[in-house]
């Protein structure tokens, strides 16, 4: 293993660029999550009704309807054709995420993300084993299962258990015992399965991933020639398999991370002391030479400290 790989994650970047720059996308992401949550809380807490509703469906400034497309699809599968307002709202949301990356919802908006990020932090602190790591296709199976149950029961099936709705609606309309779902996800991620919920099971993430499969906004390992194998990007990436094809690609391979599992969280950009990664668009054809073979240690994708 490379000596640099033994340093704490992100230490080099912090030393080189300062703490703030080495955490800029993390900070922006937390601000974004807080922003979207507070938009919804302004009404019930301060009586400023700019946004009414919750992430399942909302009305902004009395004119802009937004609807969760996954819930809309479940509703249709269950046998209800929603009214035009809900359909328009779902199309607006779907188009937006199809452009900027479906899983941007996961990393920049979803209120469960801070919970599972905290769980991951605790998981590492406690030195837990990675535990159950379902196959990559598992969340697609869960997605199919949810749609099947919706069709068979004639209900919007996932909303009976969806921890995202439970937490978000709970904060805005009243929690009841919905917090138990949030705690369950936290404990699952800490003790049973590293990055288990968001990274392997959540059908909402799977749906948004498919939605943004051809999205424009992408992270690129444009400067991959400079990679010094510190493995920090693998350590921070919630979907680390997405990095390998881009970072370890040969000269002809695109340096752009094209996997629809990538959440565009930008954490790899933060922690890289060599400035390998940058946001770009999917048609960016700037040539990105691969690393010099001589400098390459045995490529063992995914075999980071975090593994």
């Amino acid at each position: 293993m490379n000596d640099k790989a033994r340093l704490p994650v992100g230490q080099e970047a912090v030393e080189k660029f300062g703490w703030l720059r080495a955490h800029r996308f993390l900070i922006l992401r937390r601000l974004s999550q807080l922003f979207f949550l507070s938009l919804f809380l302004l009404g019930p807490w301060f009586g400023i009704w700019w946004v009414k509703g919750n992430l399942s469906g909302s009305l902004t400034f009395g004119i802009l309807p937004l609807t969760d497309p996954f819930i809309t699809v479940q509703s249709m599968v269950a046998g209800h054709w929603p009214e035009l307002t809900a359909l328009i709202g779902a199309v607006i949301v779907a188009v937006a995420y199809a452009l900027i990356g479906g899983r941007v919802y996961c990393s920049w908006v979803c209120p469960i993300n801070p919970v599972t990020d905290a769980a991951h932090w605790a998981h590492e602190k406690l030195g837990m084993q990675k535990g159950w790591q379902p196959k990559r296709g598992t969340r697609l199976w869960v997605l199919a299962m949810v749609l099947a149950v919706s069709a068979l029961t004639g209900t919007i099936a996932w909303e009976f258990v969806n921890p995202i709705s439970m937490l978000h609606r709970g904060l805005i309309f009243g929690m009841g015992f919905a917090w138990t779902f949030v705690v369950a996800v936290f404990l699952f991620d800490v003790f049973l399965s590293r990055r288990g919920w968001c990274g392997h099971l959540c059908p909402v993430g799977a749906f948004y991933g498919l939605l943004g499969a051809k999205s424009l906004l992408r992270v690129s390992a444009a400067n991959r020639a400079a990679c010094d194998d510190c493995m920090d990007c693998f350590a921070v990436c919630p979907e680390m398999h997405v990095i390998t094809p881009a970072l370890r690609g040969k000269d002809g391979d695109t340096p752009i991370i094209l996997s629809h599992d990538c959440t565009n969280c930008g954490r790899c950009i933060d922690v890289c002391a060599m400035d390998v990664f940058a946001f770009t668009h999917r048609f960016d054809a700037t040539p990105a030479p691969a690393r010099d073979d001589r400098a390459r240690s045995k490529p063992t994708p995914g075999a980071s400290r975090a593994a």
């Binding site: 399942s56 469906g57 909302s58 509703s75 209900t155 909303e159 805005i172 009243g174 009841g176 919905a178």
Partner: peptide
């Protein structure tokens, strides 16, 4: 249950606070 997305917009527009969204376990 096939149609309601549980957004609570009906609750918000109810002028008499008659409507509420059901809370889990309560």
């Amino acid at each position: 249950l096939a149609a309601c997305i549980r957004c609570g917009l009906c609750v918000r527009d109810c002028p008499y606070d008659t409507l509420k969204l059901a809370e889990l376990g309560e």
